[in-house]
Design a protein around this nucleic acid. Structure first.
Lengths: 201, 201
DNA sequence: TGTACATCAGTGAACGCGCGTTCACTGATGTAC
DNA sequence: TGTACATCAGTGAACGCGCGTTCACTGATGTAC
């Protein structure tokens, strides 16, 4: 009870891999199911043995991504001091690397969110924990003397908006090495959340 | 030589108006040409008397918008001092109001930019002057003593990204009165472009 | 181990839906004399 | 001003393309005995 299932699993993996390639190349909305099967070197009908629709394969890629993220235990023992530029940089870099690593899926999700309320909701769910996480760091920083330009949760939401917009702007616009993009963004954000010098670091 | 042309112009105006309504309600990508004609109370074929395609009507709306913007002479005698929070606020508010006023067209353009490189380019062209404008103010502010977190043009680009992302986040997410959104954003940006106190205003 | 049958992943041509686009037709407006 | 013909915006049914989806078929793998 195994060769057959292994082969099927392989085909499914090939289709997912092809989907990532094609989504990255043409974008999710511009991708036809036959583009995926062609890229995978399979017949069109083969797709439906594994996924009922284009949305479904995106859901599968999303699930894979979330498993990977969980497994990487990304936040273990990180520097959460937002009064330290290094603490800010760590978080910027973490998001940046996440975006780079999962670009086809993240972009596909962003595109799907435009035409589908279901995926819009998924996207919000995906972002919410990170916003909460940063808001907590911001509150800590404020208690340690930083003067925020507004409510921590709102500031965290603005930072999240900026991260998303700027990472895609920099990476897709091929503006230069990641390092520079991260440094620029870190400087901007660190400065933004230190409105006045009272007693930071 | 006139009643006929007047009526045709009226129909064209009705179709444009209907397009704005429908784009706002369903989004550009989810809109069918018959959705526009139905909203305008016209037959499907009527659309093609005035526009060769859905893209063409968006181009027309875009052209109308640019004319309006030019006519409003938006930047006459404005406060361009970015060392003054009021100067920053003026620019944030200007973008915010622009977005509010032209929301259906701006959003349609953003959506069209996803599936069409032509519109992606249009969108960049639309934003470029504002970025240049802000970069100039930033340079002035830096000369007057502000310490920017990076190169003025890059900082201006980040501000532009943030404006776009945050205005749609706030307005579409119905988070509260515009005033609060503008204030939060102004505080964030003002703080971001004043990394250290050396000799500002 | 060998044979006969069952199951199933995969194939790709064919089907059919949705929607953009066309076009013969209408009736009103414009033009010529 | 009146009549006969031309033009044109608008109509909506019909057409046809593109693409998602199905399905009869194949050949390989699995199962029963």
């Amino acid at each position: 009870v195994t060769v057959r299932k292994e082969q099927a699993a392989q085909t499914e993996a090939d289709l997912k891999k092809a989907a990532r390639v094609v989504f990255e190349r043409q974008g999710y909305l511009n991708t036809k199911i036959t583009d995926i099967t062609r890229e995978a070197g399979r017949a069109a009908g083969s797709f439906y043995t594994h996924f009922p629709s284009k949305d479904a394969i995106l859901e599968a890629l999303l699930a894979d991504m979330l498993v990977e993220v969980d497994e990487s235990l990304a936040f273990v023992g990180h520097n959460g001091d937002f009064n330290d530029p290094e603490g800010v940089r760590w978080h910027v870099a973490a998001y940046w690397n996440f975006y780079r690593q999962h670009k086809p899926v993240v972009q596909a999700l962003q595109q799907a969110a435009i035409t589908s309320e279901t995926f819009a909701e998924r996207l919000r769910e995906l972002m919410a924990p990170d916003i909460g996480h940063m808001a907590a760091h911001l509150r800590d920083a404020a208690e340690a003397g930083a003067v925020l330009p507004g409510d921590p949760h709102i500031v965290a939401t603005m930072i999240s908006s900026l991260l998303g917009a700027w990472a895609s702007e920099w990476i897709d616009g091929k503006r230069g090495p990641d390092d520079e993009g991260i440094t620029a963004l870190t400087g901007f954000i660190y400065s933004a959340i230190h409105s006045a010098r009272i007693g930071s670091g």
